[in-house]
Design a protein around this nucleic acid. Sequence first.
DNA 1: TATTGTTATACTCTATAACTATA
DNA 2: TATAGTTATAGAGTATAACAATA
Lengths: 145, 145
Amino acid sequence: MPGDTDVHDVAAALRVSIGMLLRRLRQVRPADELSLPESSALARLDRTGPATPGALAKLEQISPQSMGATLGTLEGRGLIERHPDPADGRRVVMSVTADGLEVLRSRRSARAERLAQALSAGFTPAEVSMLAAAAPLLERLAQSI
Amino acid sequence: MPGDTDVHDVAAALRVSIGMLLRRLRQVRPADELSLPESSALARLDRTGPATPGALAKLEQISPQSMGATLGTLEGRGLIERHPDPADGRRVVMSVTADGLEVLRSRRSARAERLAQALSAGFTPAEVSMLAAAAPLLERLAQSI
DNA sequence: TATTGTTATACTCTATAACTATA
DNA sequence: TATAGTTATAGAGTATAACAATA
């Protein structure tokens, strides 16, 4: 069908563009800023509310061990807290601290600011809207493969 | 302005969704398949035509050392070739071999196929079109930050 | 001196496997 | 036995620094 978009082409294009964007996002990281998995986990915990490491690992689609390492760093920086689950001694429940909320709410992180500025400077409002619409699709795509 | 899309929100959403998608793309990698940087470099070399490692590193926005490692793997698998530049003894020029072209053209790589199937199965044609339109924007964004 | 590429080393992120404690 | 989490170890991908060869 002529009007159809070939999913193979889309898949290939997404792979390349996402690889490039991620590399750049990693590179523009000032020393004291959260890494990508750290900020992703912090944002996730904020969205879910208090949750166990295992649940967060499933939601972020990484191993519990990896999530444990990330959460350990966030806890060390005072952005999240851990509490034992009184009903089940095996479980711990993580929650975002006031400092963590402050980090989430403040938008002055150099990396986020740089990305936002690039969007403002180099993209039309229509293009920004397209990217805004694409983000949830990308997340859904990540969950479906 | 009410109709405006907040670039900060878009930036944050993109960071999270791209992180998740990349992790998933990495995970679904069969043993003998090209890694993400490898297939990205191979596709890049195909687009540019014969090029030096340094030029490819700039285009892919990684260090020359990293590109050198990636190219070494691709060369070891016979997908690219290296030729000394007769005009400048410092330079080498890489080019895609027939085997490399075959890999690029064949779409039966398990990872690409899985991504394409996820697109077919879980997304409407309109959504696929949106992702198709977003891919070049993501690449442009990667170049502008 | 400047440029191209390579070698050496280290860090981040992630995985799998093995372990402990609790249910 | 099964589950939640931790510790130990390894591998991929990337970076910076130091080096060699050529311009």
